[in-house]
């Protein structure tokens, strides 16, 4: 059996949907700047998307930072340059692992939740009901989630960066025997604004992808519980793939000179 076949299928289905998705994106983005803007709903979504993702993102960041410190120690130990551990940990976390891991975790948590919620609203005709009550479903449902994701995920990634660095610090000082104050000083001296900002830009894009694909798949789900289930799966799979692809391109733009 060809193991690439399922990947190809997902990719082709994705291409086939690109036109519809682009139209959906344009109408969502233009709706962001046209009144009415539902501030209350934006606030509600910021809590659900950003705040409630903190535990899961914090935990994964902590363990990732720890594992990173361990790996770099093993490698650098061979050349006797263990002092680079804090530098590489902070670089790896802020530039790559922080945003990517936070993005993927949030994709699993949030894109699925959005697709399931909006998909259920679709199949139970709640979206039609919104329309008949003279409320634009894109403005009422999509815009708040899109804005909330793009605004809160950067804050989330800064917290994740700090926790990831802390994870590295704990492992380096507790089990590898590196000197704590020196580790911290090296970290702070080495990291630059640009490293953090690049991660923030990345995660803002990932947030957009997550909310857009969650909403899009929810909106286009059909046929009862099974359809909603399929929409949820598509939302997670397609947003995860797109996050990793976007990460590559963003990395090459941001650091490629």
């Amino acid at each position: 059996m060809n193991i690439l076949a399922p990947i190809g299928r997902v990719f082709l289905a994705f291409l086939a949907q690109t036109g519809a998705l682009t139209r959906f994106m344009i109408s969502a983005v233009t709706s962001c700047v046209r009144p009415p803007i539902y501030w209350g709903l934006i606030g509600q979504q910021m809590i659900r998307i950003g705040y409630f993702s903190l535990p899961v993102v914090g935990l994964t960041a902590f363990f990732t930072g720890g594992a990173l410190a361990l790996q770099i120690y093993v490698g650098s130990n061979r050349f006797g340059v263990e002092s680079v551990v804090p530098n590489i940990v902070v670089l790896g976390i802020t530039r790559e692992l922080g945003p990517v891991i936070a993005g993927l975790m949030v994709a699993g948590r949030v894109a699925a939740a959005i697709a399931a919620e909006i998909g259920t609203m679709r199949v139970t005709e709640q979206i039609d009901a919104l329309t008949t009550l003279s409320t634009n479903p894109i403005k009422y449902l999509v815009v708040p989630r899109l804005i909330a994701a793009v605004v809160t995920l950067p804050v989330l990634v800064i917290v994740a960066d700090a926790i990831g660095v802390f994870g590295g610090y704990v492992v380096a000082t507790e089990s590898l025997g590196l000197n704590g104050p020196i580790y911290l000083k090296n970290t702070v001296d080495f990291v630059t604004h640009d490293d953090v900002i690049s991660g923030v830009i990345k995660i803002a894009v990932f947030g957009f992808i997550i909310a857009l694909l969650g909403c899009y798949n929810g909106f286009h789900s059909k046929g009862g519980a099974q359809g909603v289930g399929a929409a949820t799966t598509y939302a997670v799979v397609s947003s995860s793939i797109l996050i990793l692809a976007a990460n590559y391109f963003l990395t090459s733009i941001l650091f490629g000179n």
Partner: peptide, 19 residues
């Protein structure tokens, strides 16, 4: 949207907003 302001609609399955 303006046209729909003239209308009220009861859906067969009620279609209440469960949130």
């Amino acid at each position: 949207e303006a046209m729909l302001k003239k209308f009220g609609m009861l859906f067969q399955g009620a279609a209440l907003f469960d949130s």
